[in-house]
Design a protein around this nucleic acid. Structure first.
Lengths: 335, 335
DNA sequence: TTGTACGCGTTATCAT
DNA sequence: ATGATAACGCGTACAA
């Protein structure tokens, strides 16, 4: 069992079973056209020899690496903690049973070329791109090369690429409806970056749902999804509109920055001001009080990304597709 | 450049360059005994053809997968956010330039067998085990099989295995010295799980340094590294010893749970009570006020783990070794 | 220094 | 249903 043990090959199993390599290979790969008696003999030989197929040899002929890459931004203030864990967990649930490796890559200077090279060198079957930045040329490049690829969100530029996303608009609406149902009358929002789809959509969904509830024209202050921007935005909001009694903050991280500001201004949460976040990140739990927030079904979304990718790997030129998941509201103590 | 482009092999490059496959192979692998003129010709041929070596074929003959696994616990309340990112970043800095893939595995029911199988099937060259749980049989199993493996911390059981760790004792001492230097007179500590090395060592280092500073016999309450245990421990501490003016909490996560308790008891941080954490996790920054904490050089440690692993991969039976890094104190506002 | 030829362990084609 | 045998693309003794 040591690293230097004699390797067990198809050849040896064949000798032990008294058949040819081809037959053993058929048994290993579950080909049905094998006599039942012979199959059993072979299987016995396999277990007595402790045979395991050499995957490099297999990959050489099948042209499958049985490995896919998960590419994510190295500055992960965006992709927060449980978020990341949940993505890996979701992807793994579909990859693991199939014996497909998950290769992790943080974006760096040469990530793009690296990925394409790995793809061409047969070390990678496809790529899942998480949170690519605005002007990332990689998605387009992969699409042009007809390589299997899936995005974790709707791309800023409309290119023909498969992606999985949450219904951001519905998420904003959930927040609005909760604040209204709670009895908030002067509601505002701290938005994410408005030059990015999530920022835009969450705001739009929130606005529309508020209007629908008879409170059109909500006040909004723009943040950029960072903790600091959340604090700054809340400072501005509380100063310019001291009478707000409910606020939707488009990310938990911003909410985490905003809560201490409220505390310093002597506002109690949720009694004076109700707060709803977005993401259900670890930040939501570390807030005081714990954050009511909009949760994305990240595990499910990640699993779907994996499935979509494998579909492309198995069959070239699979039609582009997008799958949208519905968010839910996690009610804790901030609203 | 599409997925179905004609593959470029050594053979073709050889034809274009007018030499043999072997010579091209030598150029690709940087063998020095190649005539300079021929080398240039070959290199031209390589770039005009766009040749890239097929790594499955190479792996088949070299018996190297050029891939290592990073195994980490799926419940990552322990391995917090930036922690994880920093590990990956550190490991990648040494792996990436060498073209070695980082395969991510969250521990699950069959992770152990999976890893050994992958090792034996030639898909993996070695394993980095992060935060294995107490009774994990995997480390011992890998050692017995003489497989390349590195641990992220000193193992609970003393088995002959290579590991990288931070000087936990020194970390506890750093916290003690800072609290003393700050003028705290009645100092206490909330420990981590005392059945695990980090919990024990941080406490021991703290105790000894306090004694050294003329304050022996510090009060200690045991937690288990979770946020909730931090809150509970602080509740007990503040009730039983209302006069404490400084506390070392053995993890930021516990500190995060403890701070709101102090606030509810009307204690101001750091004026009434100074607080020092441990880890410099994301929790440290989300605390209000931001946490003064002990920081481990995680990137450096991770890079070292990768180096130690590769050393074992390159040369079988490398002597076991342990590398200890020194922590540092990050002073913020809680102490 | 260069080329020939063999082996790495599978899968897949084609007779039988 | 089974067994030769030919790829798959590369590294590397060995010979020249």
């Amino acid at each position: 069992m040591s690293r230097h043990q004699k390797r067990v090959t198809l050849e040896e199993v064949a000798r032990v079973a008294g058949v040819s390599r081809a037959t053993v290979s058929r048994v290993v790969n579950g080909v049905t056209s094998v006599d039942e008696n012979i199959r059993q003999t072979v299987e016995r030989a396999i277990s007595t020899t402790g045979y395991l197929p050499n995957l490099a040899a297999r990959a050489l002929v099948t042209r499958r690496a049985d490995a896919i890459a998960l590419v994510l931004p190295s500055e992960n203030r965006i992709v927060g903690d449980p978020f990341f864990t949940r993505i890996v967990r979701g992807v793994s649930t579909v990859l693991r049973p199939l014996g497909v490796h998950l290769v992790l890559m943080m974006t760096g200077a040469d990530t793009g070329e690296q990925v394409i090279a790995d793809l061409r060198q047969g070390r990678l079957d496809g790529v899942i791109l998480v949170h690519t930045y605005q002007a990332d040329p990689l998605p387009g490049l992969l699409v042009r090369n007809r390589q299997p690829v899936v995005l974790s969100a709707r791309p800023a530029e409309p290119i023909p690429i498969t992606y999985v996303d949450v219904n951001q608009t519905a998420g904003g609406a959930l927040a609005a409806e909760h604040l209204v149902a709670r009895g908030c009358r002067r509601v505002a929002t701290i938005t994410g970056s408005l030059d990015r789809p999530p920022g835009q959509d969450r705001l739009a969904g929130f606005r529309d749902a508020m209007a629908e509830s008879g409170q059109p024209g909500v006040v909004s202050v723009e943040g950029d999804f960072t903790r600091e921007s959340g604090a700054a935005a809340m400072e501005r909001l509380i100063t310019e509109h001291p009478d707000v009694d409910g606020v939707f903050i488009a990310s938990d991280l911003m909410a985490e920055g905003a809560l201490p500001v409220l505390r310093r201004h002597g506002r109690a949460v949720p009694d004076d001001i109700a707060v709803v976040g977005f993401d259900d990140s670890s930040a939501a739990l570390s807030c005081d009080p714990p954050l009511t927030t909009v949760r994305q079904p990240v595990e499910d979304m990640a699993a779907e990304m994996a499935r979509q990718l494998l579909r492309q790997v198995e069959q070239v030129d699979t039609p582009v597709r997008s799958v949208i998941f519905e968010p839910s509201l996690v009610v804790r103590q901030s609203a």
